[in-house]
Design a protein around this nucleic acid. Sequence first.
DNA 1: TGCCCGATTAACT
DNA 2: GTTAATCGGGCAA
Length: 189
Amino acid sequence: MTPELEQVLGCSVHEAAPALIGWTLLFDGVGGVIVETEAYAQDDPASHAFPGPTSRNGTMFGPAGRLYVYRSYGIHWCANVVCGPEGFGSGVLLRALEPTHGLEEMRRRRGAVDERLLCSGPGRLTQALGITGEHDGLSLEDPPLALLAPAGPVEVETGTRIGITKAGEMPWRYLLSGSPFVSRPLPRA
DNA sequence: TGCCCGATTAACT
DNA sequence: GTTAATCGGGCAA
């Protein structure tokens, strides 16, 4: 792993989740800038890793820098970046991208939709990039995946997580400040 | 072996 | 604002 990536993913998930905002995620040359993430720690009741390793979440207990993909509601795929020490079982849920690469490809996969709806949600993001359960366990550093560092400083905002029923009050959702590409805006301050 | 439920989305009223 | 679609994991029996 590059030192740059190691610095972001090697630490606690609560540092890794905000640190990933502003990075560019590509799958087969298609993707964009990460504008929304959520942290899922191993001792978090809302995390898949909470009950311990299973056939589904095994990737979360592997080395950092890999992709954990699972099926949600029997319909959608959701993608996470595994982080922290190996065997720790924590990950960062990728919730939204600002599309920058392969816009045509994304529109083809998602149908003709507004640009800001292409990747504004965990299920939409995977559909637009073509990520499925087959890609569970792939390294973010090797093709077809790529993770590129932000060019400059990134301003990050914090909120509560979405769509979960346990520990929903924990402020472990992170957004690129002011981005119109997030899945849901922050509640009015 | 069966039942319930979810880190969601899109299409309704 | 509400609800159906849809399937694998986790837990009870």
